[in-house]
Computed example of a mutant assay.
Amino acid sequence: MTDNEETLYDHVGGDEGLHRVEEIFYGKVLADPVLKALFPHRRPHHVEHLTWFTAESLGGPDRFTSELGFRHLVDVHRGLDITDEQRVRFAELYEEALDEAGLPDDEGFRAAFRSHIEFGTRVAQQNSRARTEEELHPLREVPKWRW
């Protein structure tokens, strides 16, 4: 990436754009019957943490890593036993939230974001089913997504 190449984070409007999408998305998962078991109630800092994670993934500040650490992400998914149906529904609702939040709809951005969500949901699913440390996905840092 060159110094003047726009990051995905910049393309979505930074924290403001991401916070908007995460707030909409979180409302959707809390109300969704397929995801209710994974999101039984609103947690006070969930939208903020989702925003931090997504921002860092898309080339923004490293607040998630510096404030929470990647292990936090592993730990919150352990034992959830995410089903294929739940994983797919999570991705669908994220896509809907992008539209509702007014994030860019150009194909380059959407393809990158879909790839990010697909990868992330698979890592979360694997970690949710892991009974031992060895069964965890080997990823141990926030992945960086680019165009």
Rank of each mutant, 00 (worst) to 15 (best):
L93H: 00
E85C: 04
P143W: 06
D10E: 15
D62N: 15
L50I: 03
G102D: 02
D106G: 01
W145H: 12
G60N: 05
V21I: 09
R20S: 13
E16Q: 10
P33M: 09
K36A: 15
N127A: 09
P61I: 07
R42D: 12
F64T: 08
F113W: 15
L8M: 06
D32K: 03
A101F: 01
A101Y: 05
D15Q: 11
G59T: 05
G108K: 15
E141P: 00
E67C: 06
E141V: 10
D62P: 11
H72E: 11
R78H: 04
K144W: 09
Q86F: 06
H49G: 08
F64M: 11
R87G: 12
V21K: 00
N127G: 09
Q125T: 13
K28M: 13
E48T: 14
E100Q: 13
L50Y: 07
E48W: 10
W145E: 10
D81S: 12
A130T: 02
H45G: 11
E56M: 02
W145V: 15
R20V: 02
L73A: 15
T83C: 05
F39T: 09
H49T: 14
P33A: 03
T51N: 01
P40K: 05
I82N: 01
H77I: 04
L103Y: 01
V21N: 06
V88L: 11
H116I: 05
R43V: 12
R131P: 02
V76A: 03
T54W: 14
R122E: 15
E92K: 10
E134R: 14
G59V: 03
E118K: 15
R63S: 13
D3N: 11
L50T: 09
F109Y: 11
G27N: 10
E56Q: 15
R20F: 09
R140N: 07
P40I: 05
Q86P: 08
E95Q: 14
A91P: 07
R20H: 14
N127T: 04
A124H: 00
R63M: 13
E118G: 15
L68S: 07
L38G: 13
Q125E: 12
P104E: 00
E16D: 14
V12Y: 08
G102E: 05
E67V: 13
D32W: 00
H77Y: 01
L98D: 04
L93A: 04
P138D: 00
D3Q: 12
N127E: 06
A37P: 00
H77G: 01
T132I: 01
R114C: 11
D106R: 00
L35N: 00
A101N: 05
P40N: 01
L30D: 09
N127V: 08
E95H: 14
H45Y: 12
E133F: 03
F113C: 11
G27L: 03
F25L: 10
H46A: 13
P40F: 02
L18T: 01
L93I: 00
E96K: 12
D15T: 15
G102T: 03
E133K: 11
L18Y: 05
H137W: 02
F119T: 14
R78G: 06
A97R: 04
T7L: 04
F53K: 07
R71Q: 14
M1Q: 10
E56H: 00
F70K: 04
I82G: 06
L38R: 08
A31F: 09
E6I: 12
S57Y: 03
S66M: 12
F119S: 13
T51Q: 02
Q86S: 08
K36N: 09
L103C: 04
A111N: 14
L58V: 07
E92P: 04
